[in-house]
């Protein structure tokens, strides 16, 4: 004879698993995985398997969720190499570092739509910055550009094609010049490939300068 509440408790299980499946944000999904672990432990207990419930609570709710949170946190990140002077200048409040701050805010906005973080990794000079990109310590570099400083004061060099595609499509208020560097250490010709982005950025910049 099975009590009626057992059926109701068991019906909670597919409900929570559907919520877990249809969740797109990885962090929300992990928390819902914890909820699923709690409900599963309850179900196992009601059905009489106390040892299985204990294992589910310890492993499913505690260990798996915490370990996966650490894994998601360290993998879904854009490591952006910057010069130390750029970060230090932002605190001093110069006009150019203000646009650098704006640029990092834009980057964070773009990547937060993809549930990613932007982590700034400071380097003392440009040679070490470039070497870190070649050595795959960082995913992208951002430094002030030597040419065309009026319209695009920053150069962003990216070595991952997917990140380059995301930035090219979504970085709207761009004060930066995007460059894709393939793994064979050859910088591709960016301006000839994507002239439309250049023209649009130039026009928006000139509108801001002369309203």
């Amino acid at each position: 004879m099975i009590d009626s509440y057992v059926y109701v408790i068991t019906a909670l299980l597919p409900l929570v698993s559907c919520m877990l499946i249809f969740q797109v944000n990885p962090y929300h999904a992990l928390v819902i995985r914890g909820i699923l672990g709690a409900v599963t432990a309850l179900t196992y207990t009601v059905l009489g398997a106390a040892d299985v419930a204990l294992t589910e609570a310890l492993v499913g709710t505690l260990l798996a969720v915490v370990l996966y949170t650490v894994a998601v946190r360290s993998s879904m990140v854009l490591r952006l190499g910057v010069l130390k002077s750029a970060i230090a200048g932002g605190e001093a409040g110069d006009p150019q570092p203000v646009s650098f701050k704006q640029l990092t805010t834009d980057l964070q906005t773009v990547f937060s739509n993809h549930h990613m973080r932007v982590e700034l990794v400071p380097y003392p000079n440009r040679e070490e910055l470039h070497q870190a990109l070649v050595d795959k310590e960082i995913h992208a570099t951002c430094h002030s550009s030597e040419t065309c400083t009026d319209h695009q004061p920053y150069d962003i060099t990216i070595r991952l094609p997917r990140l380059y595609d995301i930035l090219r499509a979504e970085l709207a208020s761009s004060t930066a010049h995007l460059t894709y560097m393939s793994s064979s250490d050859s910088v591709s010709a960016h301006s000839s490939i994507h002239p439309s982005i250049h023209s649009s950025v130039h026009s928006s910049e000139s509108e801001e300068a002369h309203p």
Partner: peptide, 11 residues
């Protein structure tokens, strides 16, 4: 469960 919750919240 409370211990695991605190760990997760801290991360």
């Amino acid at each position: 469960g409370n211990a695991g919750f605190m760990l997760l919240a801290h991360i």
